[in-house]
């Protein structure tokens, strides 16, 4: 599975559920596949996608999905502690791990000795799943989207991207916030 296939699987699996996409190519790939009001494109603030998801999930009646990256999680593993401390939080935290800072030129993420699943488990996530292929990932998504506690899914991306990434997000960022916030009005308490 590559990043585009993983993001397509997330978009196929979700409907009204809010999805927060991390900075870099994840936002761009997601918008290229389907531009929905339920998508939040976090174009900056690297490392904070899960925190935004936590802030929504505190008030949400449906699971909140976070599409995170290995570089982002390595930059801010502290987000795991906050989510893990909230056992009733409906958060589906997806780690798309390609071991590289792809959007800044493909530099290597120094995480080969890091066990992200063990980190999430130790932080208090209720369930931790690992997906090596697209079939496993689709199953993990289906299971995770029924969650009422923090679930972490480590998706191992081994296949190269087939195409160049779509262009940068050209919506006004306040417009991204406005339409996403309007959508959240339908799924929050």
């Amino acid at each position: 599975m590559n990043k585009t296939e993983a993001i397509r699987a997330v978009i196929d699996a979700t409907g009204a559920e809010p999805v927060v996409f991390t900075t870099g190519f994840s936002c761009r790939i997601a918008r290229g596949i389907a531009d929905r009001a339920s998508h939040f494109y976090m174009t900056g603030s690297m490392g904070l996608a899960a925190d935004i998801g936590i802030g929504i999930a505190l008030h949400s009646t449906v699971p909140v999905v976070v599409v995170d990256g290995d570089g982002s999680l390595a930059m801010n593993p502290g987000c795991l502690l906050t989510a893990g401390a909230l056992p009733g939080l409906p958060l589906l935290h997806l780690l798309l791990d390609d071991r590289s800072y792809e959007s800044t030129g493909g530099q290597h993420v120094p995480s080969e000795r890091v066990d992200f699943c063990a980190l999430a488990r130790a932080a208090g996530y209720a369930e931790v799943l690992c997906a090596d292929g697209i079939g496993d990932f689709r199953e993990a998504l289906a299971s995770g989207l029924t969650c009422s506690a923090p679930v972490f899914v480590h998706a191992v991306l081994a296949a190269p991207e087939g195409a160049l990434p779509p262009p940068r997000i050209d919506l006004g960022l306040d417009e991204v916030r406005r339409r996403f916030s309007d959508h959240l009005g339908l799924v929050v308490r």
Partner: peptide, 22 residues
């Protein structure tokens, strides 16, 4: 209580988009 200040800002951003005033 949140473990680092920028994480608290991120959580507040999510909460504010859900209609709250954090």
């Amino acid at each position: 209580t949140v473990v680092r200040e920028d994480n608290a800002v991120g959580i507040a951003a999510g909460s504010s988009m859900a209609g709250r005033s954090p």
